[in-house]
Structure formats: structure tokens, C-alpha cells
């Protein structure tokens, strides 16, 4: 009985997930399939799922016309700095906003939170003027400066730190541990899923960032991967759809790798929660 119902449950879950994942993956599959088509087939009716004639030229074009190596290097540098900085800065302040108690804590947190409510499009030029006045145009520090801290990240970690049982914190205090020790030895190890989530999002956002790097850099050697798409878009002369899809496919590979790596910590999270008892 138990076994049977578990089997039925398993089949149900699998079939639900399978159907949903097909639905979710359709645009994605379409993108990859288009990256192997020639222009005539891209626009054909009815649409073809599997290219009638496999074309690899689009990928060749992507590698030939676009300084992809340089773009990847820049994006990796920028994303890594962003991830490391956000992990450090956000976890420290999230600790203050969740574990520590001080006057005005919640109001300060709310003020911080409210900065998320101003859209980036309107602060674009003021931020640019600031970076220019500092003299950081065309530099890595200019690109990463506004994303060294993320209010989203502070909020995320704060919520997670708040969920950590008080007993663990108190046990640490009795042992005479400092706040830094508490953060590093107890809170952070228990928050691996949240830290993995933050790293993933920080990486993703800087990997996908486009407008800010464009505004703050002039030289093509300083540009990030998303600029690569621009080599294949041209409204006036006609877009190169195949090339656009090929380069889009190429530049998502690193993010998928980062996602698969961060998955490990979700599973690890299950194990560590065992100590709580």
C-alpha cells in the first residue's frame, strides 16, 4: 500500500514536471533550433522544429565577427567581483539587520529597502555623472561600483538569517564567541542555500547587464558579453536571426554552469538542517 501510493505519487510528480518543463522549454528549444537555420528557414511557414538543413555558419559568424574572448573575460571579471563583494557586504549588513539589536534598526532597514523602489532608468545618468567625476570611466571599477552592494541581497539574507533558530545563536554566545565568529562559524554555514541563491542572482544580473556598462565604457575592449548580440541586430538592413540566436545560445552556457554548480548547495542545505533538532 505504502509502496504503491508512493509509486503513484512519483509517477504523478514526474508527469507533471515533464509536461511543465516541455512548456517552459519551448522558447528555449526554438532559440537553439533557430541558431542552426539559414535565414530563409528562420522565417518559413509552417515553422520547423528541427532544421531541414543544419547550418553552422551562425556560430562561425558569432566567433568570427565578435571579440567574444575579450567579452567573456570582462564579464567573468566583473561578475566575480560582484559576487564576492555582494556576498561579503550583504551578509555583514544582513547580520546586523537580523541578529544584532540596535536603535533604529528597522527604520534604517526600511529606508534601505525603499531605494529599490526607484527605477534604474532614471538614476542612469546621475550615476554616470558620479562615476565620471570619480574618474572611473572605461574601467572595471566603474562598471562594478553600483553593484558592489545589493539591497535585494541584504533583504534576501536578512529574511534567511531571521529563520535561524535563536538557540543556536545563544549557544554560541555562551561559548563567548564574537559577532564575527558567530556570523562566520554558525550563521553562514547554515545559510548555504541563501548564499548560493544570492551568488547565482548576482552573477546572473551582472552577466546580463547591458545598459550600464554601455553608458560607462566607450572602448569595445571594456564591454561585456551582452554587447555581442548587437552585432546581429540591425533593423534597417535586416536582422541576422540565426546569428543572434547562435550568440545568445553561446553566452548563456556560463550562466547555466553557474546554476548547476550552485545546485549542489541546495542539496547540502538539506543535510546541514539536520543539526538543528
Amino acid at each position: 500500500m505504502g509502496y504503491k501510493s508512493r509509486l503513484v505519487k512519483k509517477i504523478l510528480i514526474h508527469s507533471t514536471l515533464f509536461t511543465l518543463s516541455i512548456l517552459i522549454a519551448i522558447p528555449f528549444i526554438w532559440m537553439i533550433s533557430t541558431s542552426f537555420k539559414n535565414i530563409e528557414e528562420v522565417l518559413s511557414l509552417p515553422p520547423t522544429w528541427i532544421p531541414k538543413r543544419w547550418v553552422f555558419r551562425n556560430y562561425l559568424d558569432a566567433v568570427r565577427f565578435v571579440p567574444l574572448g575579450r567579452f567573456f573575460l570582462n564579464s567573468v571579471v566583473v561578475s566575480s567581483i560582484t559576487v564576492i563583494s555582494q556576498l561579503t557586504v550583504c551578509s555583514m549588513s544582513a547580520y546586523a539587520f537580523s541578529i544584532l539589536k540596535f536603535k533604529g534598526r528597522d527604520i534604517l532597514f526600511f529606508i534601505l529597502l525603499s531605494t529599490m523602489a526607484i527605477p534604474g532608468e532614471i538614476t542612469l545618468i546621475p550615476t554616470f555623472l558620479l562615476i565620471r567625476n570619480i574618474g572611473w570611466m572605461n574601467t572595471y571599477q566603474g562598471i562594478v561600483a553600483p553593484s558592489l552592494v545589493s539591497v535585494f541581497g541584504i533583504f534576501l539574507l536578512r529574511q534567511f538569517f531571521m529563520g535561524i533558530p535563536k538557540e543556536l545563536e545563544e549557544a554560541g554566545r555562551i561559548d563567548g564567541i564574537t559577532d564575527f565568529g558567530l556570523l562566520i562559524k554558525i550563521i553562514l554555514p547554515l545559510s548555504k542555500p541563501a548564499l548560493a541563491t544570492l551568488s547565482l542572482f548576482a552573477f546572473l544580473d551582472s552577466w546580463n547587464s547591458y545598459m550600464w556598462p554601455l553608458i560607462v565604457t566607450n572602448r569595445i575592449e571594456m564591454r561585456l558579453v551582452q554587447v555581442g548580440l548587437r552585432y546581429f541586430i540591425n533593423d534597417e538592413l535586416g536582422n541576422n536571426w540565426g546569428g543572434l540566436m547562435a550568440i545568445s545560445t553561446l553566452i548563456i552556457i556560463p550562466t547555466l554552469i553557474v546554476f548547476l554548480l550552485s545546485q549542489r548547495y541546495f542539496i547540502e542545505g538539506i543535510k546541514t538542517s539536520g543539526i538543528r533538532g
Binding site: L124, I125, F128, L129, R132, M211, L214, I215, N218, R219, I220, V227, R230, I233, N234, D235
Partner: peptide, 21 residues
């Protein structure tokens, strides 16, 4: 030669920022 963007809108944003700065 500095390739900015083949979107005229983005070029316009860039030029606006550059004049302001």
C-alpha cells in the same frame, strides 16, 4: 572607432549622457 550600439535609441542615450558629463 568606438562601436556603441546599432540601436539608435541606445546611441541617443549614450550621447545624452556624454553631453551631460
Amino acid at each position: 572607432q568606438q562601436f556603441i550600439s546599432n540601436s539608435y535609441d541606445e546611441m541617443a542615450e549614450k550621447v545624452l549622457a556624454s553631453i551631460a558629463g
